[in-house]
Design a protein around this nucleic acid. Sequence first.
DNA 1: CTCGGGATGCGT
DNA 2: CGCATCCCGAGG
Length: 187
Amino acid sequence: MSLRRIILRQQFFARPTLIVAKDLLGKILVRQLPAGTRRYRITEIEAYCGAADLACHAAKGCTSRTKVMFGPAGHIYVYLIYGMYYCLNLVTANVGEGEAILVRAVEPLFTTDEWPVGPGRLCKYLNIDKHLNAAKLGQQSGLWVEDDELVVSPSQINVSSRRGVGYAGKSALKPWRFYLKDNRFVS
DNA sequence: CTCGGGATGCGT
DNA sequence: CGCATCCCGAGG
């Protein structure tokens, strides 16, 4: 077991989104709340790749909602979906590109009955809502990502099309969902 | 202003 | 498969 807890900095996220996505699998999402600090392994994510990606909110342009995605990497983009669930995204790539990664599922690294699988449930259990929107990952926001030096090789990653984006035409076919093989905390 | 629909989850 | 529930973006 590890344990050098190295916090991933802005530079980690300021790279091509598909690269960041694969590197993010297996990393540790940390949530710091008054009740304590909890750690979760990232097991499932999706890449959303800017204006040309019709499934990406950025395809609608830089609006009051999407401007966070167009801002600097390493920031948090949270939005409300279906009137009841929040989705957690981590901004990637360069300023102006409008790219981000949706965190869909994590594995709790502590004893719990939580089942933070699916973007809505994940936000529910980690107490993530619109107040975190536009914040920067780090101690200040109580949400960050650590590298525990676990190595995830490409052979341990499964790839598929993204969930719930059938409306996005050709973009819906992009193989931009990534999840850990042999991990039951996947949707 | 209205209106259609959504990066979901849960119960049937 | 239907539905809850509300914000967003498009259009008048």
